[in-house]
Design a protein around this nucleic acid. Structure first.
Lengths: 198, 198
DNA sequence: CCTCCATGTCATCCGGCGTTGACATCGCCT
DNA sequence: AGGCGATGTCAACGCCGGATGACATGGAGG
């Protein structure tokens, strides 16, 4: 039983949105990034993504040639090596540690792109697409940013710790209690910082 | 085009297996653990699991009341806190580091249970079932095993690093090259060991 | 040996979701 | 202003995978 009157539905779409392929494409990809990050590849549904983008699901097919195509686009946009160069080398350890002490539900924190990658890494469908992209566009820049001795190895470990903290935070589902937060940061920060400094 | 002759299929099931509910249940759960660990919750199919267990998919429903029930059983069996107490406190860092330098495809290594947990943690359907189980039956024992000062915090970090290494290994898809392996272990081992010792 | 319940199978259903092609509508260009 | 291509919608299809209930069968107990 639906109470959708013409009045209601009119209120729901006040302006049918200007027709603009570029903007629409972007809206779809933006919605997709959120859904894929939250629910993984198989858990995200095209109809939901389309709805969030304010668009019919069929459009996704026209623009991206299917779910995999959309995912590929979202993936490309989620691995942004440029940002890495700007990380603060001095306070890296403490910055990350502080961030990870928080809750995963503090909306739109800086980890959402990593959530996306994490989900992609653990889905059988998308995992193959990832290896090359991650190695070239993610591990590479981190290596460069780190520089110095044994950079590849240190990059591996830094990335691992980062991802691991993400998962732990996911399972924990609540912020580190205030009483432990300080100790958590004090422990974690030096480990990360040592990998950067050395 | 199939070449399945009666002879062939007879050879494939020489003995239709004794009817034994307990054994069958166990076979199903064993197959399920493998499939869930490899493919995640949504990526694993009941028909495949049943086939591996040498059984019709309908049986799963009778015994476990559905896919979620089966997953719950597999989950329960995959979190085995008992083993933790037996970890080697002296060589923990080096043991883990060495293991992680290898390939994820070295079959049936000791990480398969963790693969299961990792997959479960990143699937929207199963994630809710995990929080309580992981906290109580996994983080708890690790805390106890660690003991000493700030055990909860150290447990968090140890578990995070471990899981992170798992993911990194997943994405890497090949063992750490021989040339880097030594440096990798030398870097990683002390970090983990310090968390245990202190 | 025969009966009867537990164990296991088979065919089928049902819903969900990605995809498709036909149709509607907007807005630019002459 | 009007036509036409680009943009967007709609209804429907097909497949896949989990669930279901009727049916088969083996084996223990009388």
């Amino acid at each position: 039983m639906t109470y959708d009157t013409t009045l209601e539905s009119a209120k729901r779409r006040p302006e049918p949105r200007k027709r603009d392929a570029e903007a629409t494409r972007a809206a779809i990809v933006d919605a997709a990034k959120i859904h894929f990050a939250r629910s993984g590849y198989e858990g995200a549904f095209l109809r939901d993504i389309a709805a969030d983008a304010g668009v019919d699901a069929a459009l996704i097919n026209r623009y991206f040639g299917g779910k995999e195509g959309l995912f590929g686009e979202a993936l490309k946009q989620s691995i942004r090596p440029e940002g890495i160069a700007e990380w603060d080398r001095e306070n890296f350890g403490r910055d990350i540690a502080t961030m990870m002490a928080g809750s995963p539900h503090e909306r739109e924190d800086r980890t959402s792109a990593f959530q996306f990658l994490l989900r992609a890494a653990t889905s059988p469908t998308t995992q193959p697409m990832l290896n090359e992209a991650v190695q070239q566009r993610f591990m590479g820049p981190i290596r460069d940013w780190l520089g110095g001795e044994a950079a590849p190895v240190r990059a591996r470990i830094v990335a691992s710790v980062f991802i691991g903290l993400l998962v732990e935070r996911l399972v924990r589902d609540e912020p580190v209690p205030k009483s432990e937060r300080e100790a958590f940061i004090e422990r974690l920060a030096p480990i990360l910082q040592a990998l950067v400094d050395n």
